[in-house]
Structure formats: structure tokens, C-alpha cells
Amino acid sequence: MLKDVTFGQYYPGNSLLHRTDPRIKMLILIEYLVLVLVANSEIAALLSLAFTVFLIAVSGVRFGILIKSVKPLIFVLAFTAIINLFFTVGEGEPLLNWGFITIYANGVRNAIMMLLRLLSLVLGTSVLISFTTSPLELTDAIEALLSPLKKIKVPVHEFAMMMSIALRFIPTLIEETNKIISAQKARCADFESGNLLKRIKALIPILIPLFVSAVRRAEELADAMECRCYNGGEGRTKLKVMKSRPADYAFLLAVTVLTVAVFFLNNISVSEIINLCKAIF
């Protein structure tokens, strides 16, 4: 039932993105999200697309794997594109007028923009974070970035610790769930037939053992941590100390410039650029 779920898509590697300081990557991610969502004019969209392609290229993640990560979203992507295509009311002559279906040039533009935007969001986030940052690095980075909040008594370390424990145990719980499903199937449990109510009821023999074992695991883990003198974040050092190199800062700066550029380019149309070029040369 759950055998196709993979979690933690981290692909070990040594690409530029793998080597970038995870904290810097988090900041770049924020800028990237702004950039992709803001880009509205053709030229800005093109720039954001180019940057996404660049990120994919330097991530060293194989193309097939990327395709796999987009596959589950195909329906959402298609749906958004179709909605935009048919329901955008533009000015001027429609491109197509066929019964109750009318398509405007604007609709086509919107559909393409939306599609590219969503694809960029998914792929960009995947290569920046999911594929190239191990869960441990990720929580460390979040903890470091949020650490100023410690001054106002926000339990940042505890939050990060909870997150890394949660991430760590997801595969374990999936494995456990599969085991319990098999065990109940061996007792002739039937999860696949009957009406909705019956199917929900059929889940009880899976959920109860799963909760019981999750609680048991949590207790065991808490005991094990206490036995090793864990007492919160105070004075705790890291196994892997994050270090930013000049190249990391340069990367961040470049993306910042790019984001700012997108803001400006949003107000300029392609014809204006062409005119500008003509004027210069």
C-alpha cells in the first residue's frame, strides 16, 4: 500500500549546490521564491526560467529523477494551465471561438506563464533543498537562521531538534506501517473491499499498533537522549560546523542582484528592450 512513498529525496553528491552552505541556500531559496512569483513580464519570466535551468544544471541531479519528482504533479499542472487557457478574458479578437469555448491570446500567455512558474517552483526548490541538502543540514541551517529569535525566548533549538527527529523517523514509520499491514493481511484482514465506512474501520487494526509503537519509540528515544545527558541546546556544539566561503556569499549576492533585476524588468516590455538596444547600437 505504501511501498511507493519515498521520503527524504536527498541524493548524495558533490555538485556546486551540494557544497553551498545550507544557510546560504535557505536565503537563496527565499529570494528564488520571490523572484519566480514576482516575474510577470516576458523578459522577467525568461530570466527566472534561465536561472531555474542554471540551478538544475549545477545541481548535478539526473534528469530522470527530476522528471519523477514532477510526475505526481502533472494533474495539478495540467488543470492550472487549462483553467488559465479557457477562463482568461482578454481584450481584442479571441484566437479561437468555438461554441462556448473562447481562447484569447492573453489566455495562452497566462497558461504558459503559470505552467512555467509552477514547474520552476517545484524544480527549483527540489534541486536547491530536497535533492542537495541532507535533512540534518537543513535543520541545522534553519536553527542557525532562526537563532536571533532565541533572544526573545523562542525555543529555536528545540524546534529544530523536533524537526530533525520527525524527519529521521518518517522512513522508520513507513517501514513499520508496511510491516503491520502485512501482519494484519496475514490474519485475512481486507482493506480493499466494502463501502467507505467499512474501509475506514478496516484501518483501525493498522492505526492502533502504529500509534502504540510511535509512542513507544518516542519514549525510548527520550530515555536514550537523557541517558546521554541531552539537556537542550545550551552549550551544545555541532558535529558539522557550517562555514560560509566567499563563493557562497558571491552566489547569494548574484541571486540578490537577479531578484532586484526582475523587479525592474517587470515594468519593461520586450518592445521597449528592443528599442533600447537599437538606440544603443
Partner: peptide, 30 residues
Amino acid sequence: RSRVGLVFQYPEYQLFDETVEADIAFGPKN
């Protein structure tokens, strides 16, 4: 599956019902 009974490694983690009796009855009921 009712003719070939399979007991997994550490089967105690599959128990779920209110009483032991009800839990043992799960298979026959099915």
C-alpha cells in the same frame, strides 16, 4: 492466508483490540 498462517518476527506489535480475546478473534472473524 487462512490455510497458511504466517507469524512475523516480533508479532506482538500487531496487537490492537481491546481485549486479548477480541484480538485473537480478529483472524477467524475475517
